[in-house]
Design a protein around this nucleic acid. Sequence first.
DNA 1: TCAATGTTTCAAACATCATTGAAACGTAGA
DNA 2: TCTACGTTTCAATGATGTTTGAAACATTGA
Lengths: 115, 115
Amino acid sequence: MMDEGQAVAAFAALGQEHRLRIVRRLVTAGPDGLAAGLLAEAVGVSATNLSFHLKELSRAGLVTAQREGRSIRYRAAYPDLSALIQFLMRDCCQGRPEVCAPAVAALSTCCPEPA
Amino acid sequence: MMDEGQAVAAFAALGQEHRLRIVRRLVTAGPDGLAAGLLAEAVGVSATNLSFHLKELSRAGLVTAQREGRSIRYRAAYPDLSALIQFLMRDCCQGRPEVCAPAVAALSTCCPEPA
DNA sequence: TCAATGTTTCAAACATCATTGAAACGTAGA
DNA sequence: TCTACGTTTCAATGATGTTTGAAACATTGA
């Protein structure tokens, strides 16, 4: 269960153009993730700058790193992204389910069906 | 459909302790929202500081304002919050539905059933 | 019209974040 | 062991964000 401090850190991490691009690129890359070098190219930042942002995202728990030979492979931390969404919407249904139903509907159409 | 710039602004707005509290308090307040004065008390910031943060949230499209006598009533912008969540998860299912299913499941249990 | 209330604006001080280039680090292959 | 490669660390700079208190603004009721 995510607490307020973690959520603030996560949102702050996502509230930066390059970092948001990094996360989205990793999300679309799927569980295999992507090496730092490829990420830098995809996002359009210098290696130095990418490293800075990855450290930030890592601190926020939004990505994970794993060395692989000379490269370092980064992956989106899917469970933490889910937890973040949960946190934001957690309280919204208190007595008023209609309020967050649109969000649920939107996400449901994104994925065929939870198995 | 939310674009990258809007999403960055929204996440940055949420990535600050006081602003996140403001939004969550407004989310739990439901469609009736809350007057600025009550918000300031609930969140624990000065009126001046609250005003600064509300302007930021307003710029990001996350809250709306409406004057009501001497007070100004603020409300969470539910559609924009939904859009933000959609944006974050939009691409995650490309060939890999299992990746964002947990997020969908989490939100589904939060709300009984979308009508 | 005056005073009281609720909120915002402004300017100043302070704190935090992003970017850059050079240097260092770890790994792999010759 | 040497060199090349991929990545991170460091220090310096510039840019942004946050907080504060005083003043201004809008609305209401006397």
